[in-house]
Structures are given as structure tokens and as C-alpha cells.
Amino acid sequence: MKKNIEVSVIGAGMWGSTLAALLAKKGYSVRAWEYNRVMAAHLRDNRTHSALPGFKLPAGVEVFTELEKAVVSPDLILMAVDSRHVRALARAINPLLEGKKVPHIVAVSKGIEAGSFLTVCEIMEEEIPRARRRTMIMTGPSFAVELAAGAPTKAVLAGLDPVEVQKTRKLMEGGPLKLEPCEDRLGAELGGSLKNVYAVGSGIIDGLSKAAKNSEAAFLIESASELRRIIKSLGGKNRTAWGLSGMGDLLLTATSAKSRNFRFGKEIGQGLAPAEALKRIKTVVEGFEALKTARGLCARHGVKTPVIDCIWRIVYKGNKPSSILRAAGFGTK
């Protein structure tokens, strides 16, 4: 593998920093962009990340707050920001790529855009037209904090062009990270976004039942069945729903206190109002916004989603947290 590879990482949060470090260890030149000037300065000066214990950013990673300094002549772009900011950043990146070869583009961000109901990859292709069929999603059962600590991690790299996927997999894979190629990009993106919604519901169950796993398991089965139905109804594949980016990601995110979405739901299950629960978590709870877009997307396609509807009514309409038991197949209490 050639070592004179340039990588642009957009967003130096937990995922951006973790992947920047892994790719720098492969000998690549990594240029990271971070909006938060305080965080960027900390990464530059201390080479550590407050949310990643024991993490050290390699010397091969440069950190900038100016986008044009991070996107110079990349072979690979990693989009690792909150999905709500993807469109604006992709729009700003597009002119920076004019007259240059089109890089491989991989989204680590997961989400569905309000209004358009486009996935992250679809948004980037809309804003960077030359990147059509070269835009991929990395998703699956993975916590950045564990990968950063060296835990063997298997995720999915999904794209429309299998040749592009294989080339990009070879660029990214290494160390503790193993990537499984997938051609069902839409199914993989839906799994990566919707699992955050179900994780909120699973957290509510956990809070209600004081961590009783019996009811949580019943809820996860109902959630997995609904997730599969959504993916298939929108054109994804059954295998994707039951694979790493569907069931695998759901099992991880909806059962662990490392998941912000799970912790958010647990706070609600223990009696906290959703607004107060959000304050407790402090960082972005993807499932909170994803609830609205997931519900709208499914309504547009005529897909019935009793589990998502139940979680939405608890979070946005003030229904009792105990009503989640109906979605798990139990009567309400």
C-alpha cells in the first residue's frame, strides 16, 4: 500500500480523532478540521481528547479550524460531524475540490435530514455531484472509545460501487479495525440512524424495570422486527437488517450505558422529563432528533412503526414512560 496518502477528517470529535489516529499510524498524512477552536487547540497542543481515556493523537495528524487547510488534495475524506451539519460542510467542501481528483468519501455521521428525508450519503452526493457513487458509509456495532483503546472492531463499509468500496476498505482497514464490504448503502444507513431511536426506547425500559433484562430483550425483538420491515420497505436488503449494520448495531447501542441514546432513555424511564434528561447527557443525543425524521420518513412511505410511534409519544407528547411496555408486547401499567 502506498504511504503518500492524504486524508481529510471533517470533525475531530470522538470518531474523527479515533479514525485520524488509526490512519496516521498507517503512515498517511492526516489533516483534521474542527469547528470548536478550544477543542482544536487542545488537540494540537496536548494531543489528547477529554472523552477518550489514554488516547494520544499521533504527530502525523495536523488539526485546523480553517476548512481550506484541512481539505487540500485528499485521497480520502471522512465526514465525522453531527449529521445536521453535513449539508453545509459538503457544500463548502465542493469548491475546494474543483480541478482535483475526486476523493473517496466516507461518512461516519449517521442520520436522516428533516424535510428532505435524505440520508447522509445522499446529502453529500447532492452537494458534491462529482462524488456520486464514490460516497460510502461506515457503520455497525462500534463505540469510538473502544476502538481508540484498541478493541478489535468489525464494522460495515457500504457503497453503491463495489470496486470503490474495496479500494476504500483497503485504505481504511488496519490495526483493530476490520471492515465488511456491503453494496446495500441505503439499508446500512437506515440501520445506523434508526438504531439510535430504538436505543432510547430500550433505555426507557431499562430505567423503568431497574435493569431487568427480560423486558428489555422482548423490546429489542420487537424493535429488530420493525427495523427489518422499514429497511425492506424502503428498498434495503433483509441481510443488511440482520447483519452488522442492522441487528449488530442495534444490540450494541440499545444495551450499553456507553450509548448516549440509551442513557437518555434510561433517565426518562427513571422519571426525568425529556428536556431535563437531555441536559444530563450534555453531548448530542442523535435519537432525539432522529425520532422525528424517522417517523416522517416512514409515514411518507406508508410503513407502520408502532415502536417508533410509542417512543415519539413519550419523548415529544408527554406520554407515560410505562407506555413503552405496549411496544414490547406487554400491557401498559
Rank of each mutant, 00 (worst) to 15 (best):
L157R: 07
S142R: 11
T153M: 01
E173I: 11
A88K: 15
L147I: 11
R132W: 07
A90N: 07
D161N: 15
T119A: 01
R133H: 13
L147W: 05
A144M: 03
M124W: 05
A131C: 13
E113L: 02
E98C: 02
P103M: 03
A155I: 14
V108A: 08
P152F: 01
A148L: 06
P103C: 02
G159E: 00
D161L: 07
I112P: 06
H104Q: 13
P103F: 09
E146Y: 08
I105A: 00
F143M: 09
M136W: 11
E98H: 15
M172R: 10
K154D: 04
L118R: 15
V165A: 10
P103N: 04
G115R: 05
I105G: 01
T135N: 05
I137F: 06
L160A: 14
E113P: 01
V120T: 11
G99V: 02
D161Y: 06
R134P: 02
G140A: 06
R133K: 15
A131I: 03
R91T: 15
N94E: 15
E113M: 03
V163T: 14
A92K: 15
C121P: 14
G115H: 06
L118S: 08
P103K: 11
S109G: 01
E127I: 07
R133F: 13
S142V: 03
R130H: 01
V106F: 06
S116E: 10
A144W: 12
R87V: 08
A149N: 10
P162I: 10
T119Y: 04
L171F: 14
E98A: 14
A114G: 02
G159V: 08
L147R: 10
K167E: 08
E146C: 07
E127K: 15
L147K: 00
V163L: 10
V120E: 01
A131S: 13
E113I: 02
E113F: 01
P129N: 04
A151T: 15
S142E: 04
A144I: 09
T168E: 05
T153H: 11
P129D: 00
S116I: 00
G99C: 01
R133M: 11
V165D: 08
T119I: 04
A92P: 09
A88L: 12
R134L: 11
E173D: 06
F143C: 03
E98N: 14
L147T: 12
R133W: 13
A144K: 05
S116D: 06
I123N: 03
P95D: 00
M138P: 01
G99H: 08
H104W: 09
D161K: 04
A144N: 13
E127C: 10
R132Y: 02
M136Q: 08
R87S: 12
T168W: 13
